[in-house]
Protein backbone atom coordinates (compact mmCIF):
# COMPACT_ATOMS: atom_id res chain seq x y z
CA UNK A 1 0.00 0.00 0.00
CA UNK A 2 2.82 2.40 0.92
CA UNK A 3 4.49 1.86 -2.43
CA UNK A 4 1.24 2.66 -4.24
CA UNK A 5 0.79 5.90 -2.27
CA UNK A 6 4.39 6.88 -3.03
CA UNK A 7 3.93 6.23 -6.74
CA UNK A 8 0.69 8.20 -6.78
CA UNK A 9 2.33 11.17 -5.07
CA UNK A 10 5.32 11.00 -7.37
CA UNK A 11 3.07 11.11 -10.39
CA UNK A 12 1.18 14.12 -9.13
CA UNK A 13 4.01 16.22 -7.82
CA UNK A 14 4.94 17.81 -11.15
CA UNK A 15 1.31 18.79 -11.73
CA UNK A 16 1.19 20.28 -8.23
CA UNK A 17 4.37 22.33 -8.72
CA UNK A 18 3.15 23.72 -12.03
CA UNK A 19 -0.29 24.39 -10.54
CA UNK A 20 1.27 26.16 -7.55
CA UNK A 21 2.86 28.58 -10.01
CA UNK A 22 -0.25 28.86 -12.15
CA UNK A 23 -1.45 32.13 -10.67
CA UNK A 24 1.67 33.89 -9.48
CA UNK A 25 5.41 33.51 -9.25
CA UNK A 26 7.03 32.13 -6.09
CA UNK A 27 10.50 31.38 -4.76
CA UNK A 28 11.73 27.91 -3.85
CA UNK A 29 11.08 27.95 -0.12
CA UNK A 30 7.59 29.38 -0.70
CA UNK A 31 6.77 26.54 -3.09
CA UNK A 32 7.99 23.93 -0.59
CA UNK A 33 5.92 25.53 2.17
CA UNK A 34 2.84 25.75 -0.03
CA UNK A 35 3.00 22.14 -1.21
CA UNK A 36 4.03 20.61 2.10
CA UNK A 37 0.84 22.07 3.59
CA UNK A 38 -1.30 20.01 1.21
CA UNK A 39 -2.67 17.02 3.10
CA UNK A 40 -1.57 13.71 1.67
CA UNK A 41 1.07 15.13 -0.65
CA UNK A 42 3.87 15.14 1.95
CA UNK A 43 6.63 16.63 -0.16
CA UNK A 44 9.91 18.01 1.09
CA UNK A 45 12.69 20.13 -0.33
CA UNK A 46 14.67 17.20 -1.73
CA UNK A 47 11.75 16.45 -4.04
CA UNK A 48 10.84 20.01 -4.97
CA UNK A 49 14.23 21.58 -5.68
CA UNK A 50 15.45 18.96 -8.17
CA UNK A 51 12.05 19.13 -9.87
CA UNK A 52 12.21 22.94 -10.12
CA UNK A 53 15.71 22.62 -11.62
CA UNK A 54 14.48 20.08 -14.17
CA UNK A 55 11.41 22.11 -15.11
CA UNK A 56 13.60 25.19 -15.56
CA UNK A 57 15.95 23.15 -17.75
CA UNK A 58 12.99 21.98 -19.82
CA UNK A 59 11.92 25.62 -20.30
CA UNK A 60 8.66 25.05 -18.46
CA UNK A 61 9.66 27.60 -15.84
CA UNK A 62 11.24 31.01 -16.16
CA UNK A 63 13.40 32.30 -13.33
CA UNK A 64 14.56 35.62 -11.99
CA UNK A 65 16.64 36.37 -8.92
CA UNK A 66 15.87 39.07 -6.39
CA UNK A 67 17.59 40.16 -3.19
CA UNK A 68 16.34 38.54 -0.02
CA UNK A 69 16.09 40.36 3.32
CA UNK A 70 17.38 37.21 5.04
CA UNK A 71 20.41 35.97 3.11
CA UNK A 72 21.29 34.77 -0.39
CA UNK A 73 19.26 36.07 -3.31
CA UNK A 74 15.95 34.29 -3.91
CA UNK A 75 15.16 32.63 -7.21
CA UNK A 76 11.61 33.29 -8.29
CA UNK A 77 9.89 30.86 -10.66
CA UNK A 78 6.97 31.49 -12.99
CA UNK A 79 5.31 29.48 -15.73
CA UNK A 80 6.55 29.92 -19.29
CA UNK A 81 4.29 29.38 -22.27
CA UNK A 82 5.66 25.83 -22.53
CA UNK A 83 4.93 25.30 -18.85
CA UNK A 84 1.42 26.72 -19.18
CA UNK A 85 0.60 24.34 -22.05
CA UNK A 86 2.05 21.43 -20.10
CA UNK A 87 -0.01 22.35 -17.04
CA UNK A 88 -3.19 22.58 -19.13
CA UNK A 89 -2.52 19.16 -20.67
CA UNK A 90 -1.80 17.63 -17.28
CA UNK A 91 -4.93 19.13 -15.77
CA UNK A 92 -6.99 17.78 -18.68
CA UNK A 93 -5.52 14.29 -18.21
CA UNK A 94 -5.92 14.47 -14.46
CA UNK A 95 -9.57 15.50 -14.69
CA UNK A 96 -10.34 12.71 -17.16
CA UNK A 97 -8.65 10.09 -15.00
CA UNK A 98 -10.13 11.47 -11.80
CA UNK A 99 -13.65 11.42 -13.27
CA UNK A 100 -13.30 7.90 -14.66
CA UNK A 101 -11.77 6.51 -11.49
CA UNK A 102 -14.39 8.28 -9.41
CA UNK A 103 -17.17 6.66 -11.42
CA UNK A 104 -15.48 3.29 -11.14
CA UNK A 105 -14.98 3.58 -7.40
CA UNK A 106 -18.53 4.81 -6.86
CA UNK A 107 -19.82 1.88 -8.91
CA UNK A 108 -17.70 -0.55 -6.89
CA UNK A 109 -18.97 0.83 -3.63
CA UNK A 110 -22.64 0.43 -4.60
Amino acid sequence: MDAWVTQLRRGLIELCVLAALGEEEAYGYQIVERLSAIAGLEVTESTIYPLLARLARDKCLLTRTAASPQGPARRYYRLSEVGRRRLDEMIAHWQTIQKSVHHLVQGESR
Binding site: Y29, V32, P50, L52, R57, Q70, G71, P72, R75
Partner: peptide
Protein backbone atom coordinates in the same frame (compact mmCIF):
# COMPACT_ATOMS: atom_id res chain seq x y z
CA UNK B 1 22.90 15.70 -12.74
CA UNK B 2 23.95 18.54 -15.06
CA UNK B 3 25.93 21.51 -13.81
CA UNK B 4 23.06 23.94 -14.32
CA UNK B 5 20.63 21.79 -12.36
CA UNK B 6 23.15 21.20 -9.57
CA UNK B 7 23.66 24.92 -9.29
CA UNK B 8 19.94 25.54 -9.10
CA UNK B 9 19.37 22.85 -6.47
CA UNK B 10 22.28 23.94 -4.29
CA UNK B 11 21.34 27.60 -4.32
CA UNK B 12 17.78 26.62 -3.33
CA UNK B 13 19.03 24.46 -0.45
CA UNK B 14 21.28 27.29 0.74
CA UNK B 15 18.40 29.77 0.61
CA UNK B 16 16.25 27.22 2.43
CA UNK B 17 18.80 27.08 5.27
CA UNK B 18 18.75 30.86 5.62
CA UNK B 19 14.95 31.00 5.53
CA UNK B 20 14.80 28.46 8.36
CA UNK B 21 17.50 30.29 10.34
Amino acid sequence: VSRGERRGILSEVESHVFELL
